[in-house]
């Protein structure tokens, strides 16, 4: 079982990293979520791999499984879920506003607004297809 879990984590991490190194946003997002699966599995494995053992004290039982990593994984899953939702929306908005789905920032997009003035008109247009 150790070998199976270890290679699963390894393959997930490798695919995640490969996808994160791509230029397009969607690939990066998928890569990030695959990496988070690898991390969750890894956290599980850190509680030692045990089958059919109770996590809570019971009379007459000597071997327990560790409940803490499971609680950690739960928290990590919730956070990763929220973050993935956020970055998906962010990527989508960036695509709709700029018309490109690459990760890099083009010079023409680097128009910023500052304190007293109103935001630049150019940045307000171009909402993209609706």
């Amino acid at each position: 079982m150790e070998g199976l879990i270890a290679s699963a984590i390894g393959i997930l991490t490798a695919s995640g990293i490969y996808l994160m190194l791509q230029r397009r946003m969607l690939a990066v997002i998928v890569g990030l979520s695959i990496l988070s699966y690898a991390v969750n599995l890894f956290l599980f494995a850190m509680g030692r791999l045990a089958i059919d053992k109770p996590p809570v004290l019971q009379p007459g039982v000597t071997d327990y499984s560790d409940p803490l990593p499971q609680a950690l994984v739960l928290t990590a899953i919730v956070i990763a879920f929220g973050m993935t939702a956020l970055i998906v929306v962010l990527g989508l908005r960036a695509y709709l506003e700029t018309g490109s789905d690459t990760v890099d920032v083009a010079d023409s997009q680097m128009v910023r607004d500052f304190s007293p003035g109103r935001p630049d008109e150019k940045t307000q247009s171009g909402r993209g297809p609706t």
């Binding site: 960036a94 890099d104 920032v105 935001p119 630049d120 940045t123």
Partner: peptide, 15 residues
Amino acid sequence: GDGPWRLKAGFQYVA
């Protein structure tokens, strides 16, 4: 405050 630059830079920051 929005704007294309912020969205693109924001994506990198979040990633």
